[in-house]
Amino acid sequence: MLTFKDVSKKYGNRVALDDINFHIEEGEFVFLVGHSGAGKSTLVKLLIREETPTSGSIHFAGYDIEQLSRKALPHLRREIGVVFQDFKLLPRKTAFENVAFAMEVSDFSNREIKKAVNYMLDLVGLSAKSRSFPHQLSGGEKQRIAIARAMVNNPHILIADEPTGNLDPNVSWDIVQLLNKINNWGTTILMATHASDIVNSLQKRVISLDEGKIVRDSMGGYNE
């Protein structure tokens, strides 16, 4: 479903990613680990086409991402759900509106939006807070809203870039449980993190980056 083939990314003379090769099957849960600056965020940016690779190719669900036209880009983005460390919620919109926003851009009707958003809020356990604004929500709740928004368009893959980076350990654990649940329902998950305890406890596939290179791609814990 997702293939990186000989992908490199350079910023001037600095090599951010060097000859990256991997393939992810539909329904997998993959951790992307490594120190800060190892290339995790660059890899995510290439995947959502915020950046283009210097060389190599990226195939995802029928798209050749590196060759994608500007016009086709929104369609790709609707197939990929993304969750960030800083949540990226709109402060002036309620929880419901934040999730609905992702569907509005895809021209769904208000009725469809209402149905899907309520379903997603229920799924992440925040139905009761649908009218709350982000500043009225805790960090964990904000991240759940962000996950609901990422999932509401029913994407092929959910990318979580350090989703627990700003959260307490027990709240982090809740978020990971939620991601795991979503994965069990069939959605592919790629989670960039350097939270070793989470990686260790889940024992999933781990792709480890160091200085822009893949140094490990296997099942197991953070350091194996």
């Binding site: 016009k71 929104p74 790709l76 983005r77 993304v82 926003f101 851009v105 895809s106 368009n153």
Partner: peptide, 9 residues
Amino acid sequence: IMKLVGAST
């Protein structure tokens, strides 16, 4: 965020 969730230009 609009662009991230797939809003067209």
